[in-house]
Nucleic acid binder design. Sequence first.
DNA 1: ATCCAAAGGCCTGCCATCTC
DNA 2: GAGATGGCAGGCCTTTGGAT
Length: 310
Amino acid sequence: TDPLVHHGRHFGRSIHALCNMHALINNGIIRIGERAEDPEDDFTPQEQREHRVFCALLKSIPGLEEKLMGANSEEDIQSIAAMLQKGASSARSDDTKSLKSAIIDWIVSPGEPLMPPISRNAKTGRGFHHEVTGALLCPAGLDWTDAEIRDKLRTGELSVPGDQWPLFLFNSYAYDDTDPSKGLLKSSILVKTFKHIFTSPSSVEREAKATRSGNARIHGMTGVTRGSIAYAATQARFALSSSGVFNRNDTITDSERFYNSILEYLEDPDEADDVNTLMAWWNRQVFPNYVPNSRPVSKNSALARIKAKR
DNA sequence: ATCCAAAGGCCTGCCATCTC
DNA sequence: GAGATGGCAGGCCTTTGGAT
């Protein structure tokens, strides 16, 4: 496969999922031109955000900038964008597929039966239809033990927009309304989802059985990123929900708004202190033994090949 | 009619272990 | 040690189904 597809997979998982690659790249190139002409040019906050993502894209894929600048037709750029998009989309799809069954093992304590049982390969019966997934998805601040609230969530009378965060994001699934950031993004289910995607499915258990490099290693990922945490949260939220089809624009599941709201929080300068502490915590959870260049890499490993390309 | 996502099958790469 | 073997993980292909 084309290396751009490969890079697109990791970009989607770690920097920005759910974006339109064509627009991202086209707008990015235009903005570079405008900035060169008029450095004083002001961009809207939205444009500035998009441009930061574009710069991260250029930075994360060696040779991409040259490739884009050297493209001599609109078509060339379109095909580059299409490859990256394909990578991001297929990675997202592979992860939803894989998490769909895996997450069932993480929502009750080991050994405890799940009542009623949830099918590993179907989404019906999840979401607010089930006591356990419902409690996890219930917006922080609402009381899932209240029968009236449960009913309204089930019927949809009470709809939950993506920026109203569910309880499963919080450590021990406990929300403290006097301190809303307490335990935020520190739940075990989120860490497990992250490990499943980035370090390997078996690394979720205490003793990893992996014999092959996981995604983080394949792509030389050495620490968590804001995008990767938001991505794991979005995948977990979708896996717990009853909706069967992942769709960016679906207003019921509202995954894109959810993803962006997490990302916004993590990038908010006003939250920088909390977020830096949080990121350090994540790195200890997920990459505890990481020391730069400490591991020998076999000559033919994917990582070695990637390094050789740089 | 077209597009996209889901699902399962399949293939390949990687690593640990075995066997000689 | 070198080569064979087996299992795990990631990714690709194909089919299917639903939405637009």
